[in-house]
Amino acid sequence: MTKSEQGRHRERQDPHWIEWLTGLVSALLVAAMLSWLTWEAFTRESIPPDLVVTVLTTEKTSSGHRVAFDIYNTATITAAAVTVVGRLREGDRVIEEGDVTFDYVAAESKSTGAILFQNDPAGRIVDIHPAGYTDP
């Protein structure tokens, strides 16, 4: 805030009440965030990766058939180098197999991917499951 005296500007010495309010609200937000992070650090249980795959769609492409899926990590620890294997079966016989590797699947999140098959999955069993991961 400035006052004008003979064409000159001069800063006010006393801060405006809005500056005090802004500073107080900011300090409270920072304190609340630090408290929450500290609470999470000491009370959150470390649960190893728990990976679940859900098939979304099957589409015909120019090079075959794409089976899209979501992979969920419901645990509190991230999984790295996650390998997902997909098998196309008729009864007990495996017709085709493919896999895809995710760099990571973060804790309590999902990632989306697809496995490409040459054979049409219609009328066949599509089995897609996580095969392994490493600790990051």
Rank of each mutant, 00 (worst) to 15 (best):
T54W: 05
T43L: 02
V53W: 10
W17H: 08
W17D: 02
T57R: 15
W20C: 14
V55W: 02
L37T: 03
S26D: 11
T43D: 04
T43K: 07
D14P: 05
T58Y: 00
W39S: 03
S63K: 02
I47T: 06
S46N: 04
T43Y: 11
T57Y: 13
W39A: 11
W20F: 15
T57A: 11
A32H: 12
P15R: 01
I47L: 01
D50P: 11
T61M: 02
K60E: 09
L34G: 04
L24K: 13
P15D: 01
S46M: 14
K60M: 11
L28W: 10
L37V: 02
E45K: 06
L28H: 04
E59M: 02
S62Y: 01
W20H: 15
H16Y: 09
T58I: 08
A32R: 04
T57M: 09
W17T: 13
T22N: 14
P49G: 02
M33V: 07
D14I: 08
D14N: 10
A31R: 06
P49H: 01
P48K: 06
A31Q: 04
R44Y: 09
R44D: 10
S35H: 01
P48F: 13
S62V: 07
L28C: 07
T58M: 05
R44Q: 10
K60V: 11
V52G: 07
V25P: 08
L51W: 00
L56H: 05
D14T: 14
L37D: 01
